[in-house]
Simulated scan of single mutants.
Amino acid sequence: MTALTIRDVPDDQIQTLKVRAAQAGKSLQAFMQDLIAREASRPTMAEMMARLDRETTARVSAADVVAAIDEGRAGR
Rank of each mutant, 00 (worst) to 15 (best):
Met1Val: 15
Met1Lys: 12
Thr2Lys: 12
Thr2Glu: 15
Leu4Gln: 06
Thr5Gln: 08
Thr5Met: 10
Ile6Ser: 01
Arg7Lys: 05
Arg7Gln: 13
Asp8Tyr: 01
Asp11Gly: 10
Asp12Gln: 11
Asp12Val: 00
Asp12Glu: 08
Thr16Glu: 13
Val19Trp: 06
Ala22Val: 01
Ala22Tyr: 13
Ala22Pro: 11
Ala22Cys: 09
Ala22Asn: 06
Ala22His: 14
Gln23Ser: 15
Gln23Ile: 11
Gln23Pro: 15
Ala24Glu: 10
Ala24Leu: 03
Gly25Arg: 01
Gly25Phe: 04
Gly25Thr: 12
Lys26Pro: 09
Leu28Gly: 05
Leu28Gln: 01
Gln29Phe: 06
Gln29Asn: 11
Gln29Ser: 11
Ala30Cys: 03
Ala30Thr: 12
Phe31Lys: 01
Met32Cys: 14
Met32Gln: 07
Gln33Ala: 15
Asp34His: 03
Asp34Ala: 03
Ile36Cys: 03
Ala40Asp: 15
Arg42Glu: 14
Pro43Tyr: 07
Thr44Ser: 03
Met45Phe: 03
Met48Ile: 06
Met48Asn: 04
Met49Pro: 10
Ala50Met: 11
Ala50Asn: 06
Ala58Val: 08
Arg59Met: 02
Arg59Tyr: 05
Val60Ala: 11
Val60His: 01
Ser61Phe: 09
Ala62His: 11
Ala63Ser: 08
Asp64Gly: 13
Asp64Leu: 15
Val66Glu: 13
Val66Pro: 00
Ala67Gln: 05
Ala68Asn: 00
Ile69Leu: 06
Ile69Phe: 06
Asp70Tyr: 09
Asp70Ala: 11
Gly72Thr: 05
Arg73His: 02
Arg73Thr: 09
Ala74His: 03
Ala74Gln: 01
Arg76Ala: 06
